[in-house]
């Protein structure tokens, strides 16, 4: 029982970390970044590189952030910028970018599975249950991430501009907000977050050129049911992640793998705005 609850909480935390970058991009740009999976893969390989050169495994995370941000900035400048008015085409183009990232990774490394050194090993005893320390650390990181993003959005002038663009882009532009800059910064930040998420999940999954795709679908569905709110994303992560844990427990991991997608589709059919309360 305790183990299941801990599983639900930590799964929700992981989903929150994985989906927050996508949500940021979707909220500000009304654009679905299908390169999110590719960027996660990139982050996973940053952790692999950190292991390969023998530095502290934690270094892999800032390294992933740098990789993701640079690649994201380039993608926004070259490709995404011209697709703001074509949201469905943007899905396809970013998927194409994901293929490109995956192929370049395959060329540099190979198609095989790689492993990154986990930053923390072992278990701790919690409520009479010995539980993976790393999963608990991820939960703390997810809370910090949510808090940090909220502070940026609420506490800085860039955050204010971003919220203005989310609410009414035309008006924001009319008031002199450089919405192009807001978009660039958001996309770069979102890409960096995707790569960080990719690096953070390496201790839980092996690293291979297609590792991001499965996560992409879960993240995408979570974002759709959350609208553009970080709070709704937290609720959606707990509800859908919890459902995944329970279905996996009773019916096996294979059916658990489709729980989030199937459940989110049904939720959106019944309530198109999903978990957002607007």
């Amino acid at each position: 029982m305790i183990a299941t609850i801990l599983d639900i909480i930590t799964t929700a935390a992981i989903l929150y970390i994985v989906a927050s970058g996508l949500l940021l991009v979707f909220g500000v740009m009304k654009l679905i970044n299908f390169a999110h999976g590719g960027l996660m893969t990139l982050g996973g390989y940053a952790a692999v590189i950190a292991t390969a050169i023998g530095v502290n495994p934690w270094i892999g995370i800032p390294l992933a952030a740098i990789f993701g941000a640079i690649v994201g900035l380039g993608m926004e400048r070259i490709v995404v910028r011209s697709l703001y008015n074509r949201p469905l085409d943007a899905i396809l183009a970013t998927w194409g970018l994901s293929i490109i990232i995956g192929q370049i990774i395959t060329l540099v490394f190979d198609r095989g599975v790689h492993f990154a050194e986990p930053p923390i090993r072992g278990v701790v005893s919690l409520l009479g249950e010995s539980y993976s320390t790393y999963r608990l650390v991820l939960t703390v990181l997810a809370l910090l991430l949510g808090l940090g993003l909220t502070l940026i959005l609420k506490g800085t002038s860039l955050g204010l501009s971003t919220r203005a663009v989310i609410m009414n882009e035309d008006l924001a532009r009319g008031l002199g907000i450089n919405s192009g800059l807001v978009r660039t910064v958001t996309f770069t930040l979102g890409s960096g977050l995707a790569a960080v998420a990719g690096a953070l999940i390496t201790p839980l999954s092996s690293v291979y050129p297609d590792m991001g795709t499965a996560w992409l679908i879960s993240a995408f569905m979570l974002v759709l049911v959350s609208g553009s709110s970080l709070y709704s994303l937290a609720i959606a992560s707990v509800v859908l992640g919890g459902a995944q844990v329970i279905v996996s427990g009773y019916f096996g991991a294979v059916l658990g793998g489709m729980t989030i997608a199937a459940l989110a589709a049904v939720i959106l059919r019944i309530r198109p705005q999903g978990f957002s309360y607007e």
Binding site: L92, I99, L107
Partner: peptide, 12 residues
């Protein structure tokens, strides 16, 4: 990789 690059270029 080439297909990916052409695909993105065509979409854009």
């Amino acid at each position: 990789l080439v297909i990916g690059v052409i695909f993105v270029s065509v979409i854009v």
